[in-house]
Amino acid sequence: MKKVLLGSTGMEVSPLIFGSLPMGPLQAAKPPEEGGRLIRYALERGINMIDTAELYENYGHIREALAGYRGRCYLASKTHASDPETARKHVERALRELAVDHLDVVHVHAARIADPLVERRSVIDVLLQMREEGKIAHVGLSSHYICAVRKAAASPDIAVVHPLINHRGMGILDGTAEQMAAAIAEVAEAGKGVYAMKALAGGNLIGEARMSLSYVLGLAGVHGVAVGMLSEREVDANIALFSGAELDPAQWETLESGRRQLKIMERFCKGCGACVPACTNFALSLVDGKARVDEQRCILCGYCAAACPEFIIRVV
């Protein structure tokens, strides 16, 4: 697979980036050995960047994939911490559990914060300090806000931006897909690396996956797209799509026939409400003492599952 420069970072990455969220406990709950085999399969076929996060709880899967691997693989993680002490702990845990001496990118994971450059200033500062310590190569910003992406363009501290974008604009908190696309072009023009998230809106757009992925990949300023994959068949199909190779229509029709949804085991819901503020897209509420999901808003990220103390929410 061809490689592209990720902005001014000097990183030459595959435009298809392995999005590791779906294989962890928030969604498919694959065992680390099984998840590791799939990631290793992708690495050996040319994908050379993995996107993960503290919240995903899947560092063991990635460590399994990297064991004995001699190729270059870039690792990007995220911290959702609101204070510097916790952010440092998140990074140090990632280094320890991944068994690496540094991370290539660590994002300030601030999906629902309109101005993370102000509200997460102390977190950015500690990540910059860890960059000086050699534990982080680049500081990034992960956001669902157009205004946050635009502000990152002017920040000397942010080297990589991980914005939410899909052709329907699902999950964007302050505007349209067209407005986010314009912000992405602006931030890339400023020299930032850009790799997109939620091109399939967390699975809501699986039925039109080829068109949806091609739309995001073709946007000005997008260097790569993180795509969640759970099978070798998905890896092969996406590599073909991102490489401009001839596609197998039958294979894609099968893949696009899949559907995912957020499942709340209502019978066991105690109505504690912990899932509601965890939702990055305001898709959850309590109705008659039970958690309810607005499927029009839900982008199937699974963060609510991590917040549920009863473990009764799952993306399936």
Rank of each mutant, 00 (worst) to 15 (best):
L6Q: 09
S8Y: 02
G10R: 11
G10I: 09
V13S: 08
S14F: 02
G24T: 00
Q27F: 08
E33N: 07
R37N: 11
R37Y: 02
G46N: 10
D51A: 07
T52F: 01
L55S: 15
Y59A: 03
G60Y: 12
A65C: 03
L66F: 04
G68I: 00
T79Y: 12
H80F: 12
P84G: 13
R88F: 08
K89W: 11
E97K: 13
H107F: 14
V108K: 04
R120Y: 09
R121S: 12
D125E: 15
V126Q: 03
E133K: 09
K135Y: 14
Y145G: 05
C147P: 02
P156C: 02
H162Y: 13
G175N: 10
Q179Y: 08
A182V: 04
E186I: 04
E186F: 09
V194F: 09
Y195S: 07
M197I: 15
K198W: 06
A199S: 15
L200G: 08
A201D: 06
S214I: 00
L217V: 07
L217T: 03
L217K: 12
G218E: 04
V225A: 01
A226V: 02
A226Q: 08
V227Q: 06
M229H: 04
S231L: 06
S231T: 14
D236T: 06
A240D: 15
A245Q: 15
A245N: 15
E246P: 02
L247N: 01
P249Q: 02
P249G: 00
P249H: 00
W252M: 00
W252S: 00
E253K: 00
E253W: 00
L255R: 01
E256C: 00
M265E: 15
L284D: 10
V287G: 08
V293K: 06
C298K: 05
I299T: 07
R314G: 05
R314D: 11
